[in-house]
Nucleic acid binder design. Structure first.
Lengths: 193, 193
DNA sequence: CATTCAGGTTGATCTAGGTCAACCGGGATG
DNA sequence: CATCCCGGTTGACCTAGATCAACCTGAATG
């Protein structure tokens, strides 16, 4: 399935569009390809884009004082990535967004998105639903970090990200669930036997 | 300011309404008062309500296997509380929502909210913006937990919740930033000198 | 085909923060 | 006025997970 068909299907899950609305919506999107390890977004810049992944996979993360990487989100095909903090409050972000494999995207800028809302208000609904779902999942993530052990968090991760878990390195998974690669390796060893 | 005026002002920050829309919106809201320690929502139940706090303060939390309380959100006056996971995915929640002082609320049920969206679509916009902001803040919370020490998280907490920090017990703050009351007490002692 | 180099493993040691239990003080309650 | 209880403090000890450095492997690269 090509990128345009994919995003239309995604939107179509939540709202219905007539043919010309689809055309108009697609016309607002800027396609762009990224190579593995290429940045879609860097710390310190304002994030003005909603980015839809049409194929490949992307991570968003921050670097702490010691230069350690902490992965905030992993966005596979058929997902949006954004540095929400930067996008919403229009200030420099502290996240990097980086392709972890060659990745195809469709970019919706803040201005185009506002234009979209003006022309087709039902897109407010689409993004409302999208964000409410993402928010719900994110709240779970907080409670998981607060109340579960690393091993338990890993359990959940495996279930939720089963489809992409194989294509991620241990380092990435470790970072996502919030432990060091060394500890994660030991954890796996302990589980195997 | 009374509850109705407060919620109209809140909504008015994001969208504009004519007089009859305001009336209609208010007609969908069910006022309800809660005493300190009363539950607005219990673990195991489906959360079907968006709840707006008109005065007082509320916390949402979960109990882990050991019965320890972990506070997910603290909602003061002029905020909404919901168990998003339960509300969005329509399944039993694992959160408690409890008044930490006597609290006045306006309740918007899921059905009424859908009705509201049908009658006044710009409310999609209101909730879209609301949720995008909440989501952004919540993502910060995740990165904070992943990359900061307890003391640093407390710093941030003080800044962000300055206005209500005094009316919370140390236990509540400790739980919110993700440490035990004992450790939190020691942390304060260390800071004082 | 030699060399990097990134991802992973492992050992030794360290520490942030947890656990458990005793204790304190003050406001509510009988 | 005695008692309870809740929030907080403190001491002694414990542990999940971090840190640091050495080492291994295999795939990419010159």
């Amino acid at each position: 399935m090509d990128g345009q068909a994919l995003i239309l299907r995604n939107v179509g899950n939540y709202i219905s569009m007539v043919e010309e609305e689809k055309k108009y919506f697609l016309s607002l999107l800027q396609p762009r390809e990224y190579y593995r390890k290429e940045y879609l977004q860097r710390e310190g810049n304002n994030c003005n884009n909603f980015i839809f992944i049409t194929n490949g996979c992307v991570k968003s993360y921050l670097l702490d004082q010691k230069g350690e990487e902490h992965i905030l989100t992993i966005a596979p095909t058929d997902w949006w990535v954004v540095d929400y903090m930067s996008f919403v409050f229009e200030k420099p972000g502290n996240l990097f967004i980086e392709a972890i494999e060659n990745t195809g995207t469709l970019i919706l800028t803040k201005e185009k998105r506002e234009e979209l809302f003006r022309k087709i208000p039902s897109f407010e609904r689409y993004f409302r639903i999208l964000t409410e779902r993402a928010f719900a999942v994110n709240q779970q993530r907080v409670t998981d970090i607060l109340s579960l052990t690393a091993a338990e968090r890993f359990e959940k991760f495996q279930q939720r990200y089963a489809h992409i878990a194989n294509s991620l390195t241990q380092q990435q998974i470790a970072s996502f669930i919030g432990v060091t690669p060394a500890f994660f390796s030991r954890m796996l060893k302990a589980k195997r036997k």
